[in-house]
Simulated assay, not measured.
Amino acid sequence: MGHRALVAYERPDGRYDRGYAQWGATDLSLRHRITAETPFAGGGRNGRAKGTNERDERWRPAVDPTPQATALTFEDAVLFDYRTFEAFFVVSLSWDVTAYLPLWFGTTIDANSDAGALVEVYDEADTRDARRWFRATRAVVRDMVGEEVLDAADAIDYLDSRVTEWAGDRREVVFTR
């Protein structure tokens, strides 16, 4: 399955090209590996070829150089299935890379998959702590929806406010709905 990540590269026109990295969320290392010299974060050998015992020794970049989507507004770049990706990176024109943890606000399996927030994270330990806090908070909210104390819209509003409060001034938060 991989530790999937999306990478939004800022363009000179203020829009973004969004790329995919199968193992990009692993220890958030893309944050340090994407540079002007290595725009697709270097790479490595692929390992075993699918369905064979032979090695696939082709070098592959960490971020697929063919974008999934191009010329997106920032608002469109951050719309994706928050259940599927473990990290989101934004690369500025000056090659500053910001790492975000996608937090899905869904309280039921059929809830809107792009409702959530991107919370800035700094390293693997910070990511683990943020994920643990959010999972516990969302579990309580899910129980409240299951007991019909909150409806889905109120649950999203509540999670929105809790994430805002938790993040405070320490980190950037980008909300989607």
Rank of each mutant, 00 (worst) to 15 (best):
M1S: 15
G2K: 00
R4A: 11
P12W: 05
P12V: 04
G14Y: 08
Y16K: 00
Y16P: 13
Y16T: 03
D17W: 02
Y20C: 04
Q22W: 10
Q22S: 05
T26D: 15
D27N: 14
L30Y: 12
L30S: 10
H32K: 01
T35D: 13
E37P: 02
P39A: 00
G44D: 08
G47R: 09
R48T: 14
R48C: 07
A49P: 11
K50P: 15
N53D: 15
N53L: 08
R55C: 04
D56V: 06
W59G: 03
P61K: 00
P61A: 05
A62K: 05
V63D: 09
P65F: 06
T66M: 04
T66P: 05
P67D: 01
T70S: 13
T70Q: 14
T70I: 06
T70A: 05
A71K: 11
L72N: 09
L72W: 07
T73G: 14
F74L: 11
E75L: 10
L79E: 15
R83E: 05
T84P: 02
E86I: 01
E86W: 04
A87L: 03
A87R: 07
V90M: 07
V90R: 15
V91Y: 11
L93Y: 10
S94R: 14
W95N: 11
V97Q: 10
Y100C: 03
P102E: 03
P102T: 07
P102F: 05
W104D: 13
F105Y: 13
T107M: 06
I109V: 15
N112G: 05
S113P: 15
D114M: 03
G116Y: 01
A117R: 04
L118C: 08
E120Q: 14
V121T: 08
Y122T: 12
E124Y: 12
A125H: 13
A125L: 04
D129H: 11
A130T: 14
R131F: 13
R132C: 06
W133I: 02
W133C: 10
V141G: 02
M144H: 12
G146P: 07
L150H: 04
D151F: 01
A153N: 11
D154L: 01
D154H: 06
A155R: 02
D157Q: 09
L159W: 09
T164I: 07
T164N: 12
T164L: 11
A167H: 05
R171E: 07
R171A: 06
R171M: 03
V173Q: 02
V173Y: 02
V173K: 03
R177M: 00
R177C: 00
R177Y: 08
R177K: 03
R177G: 09
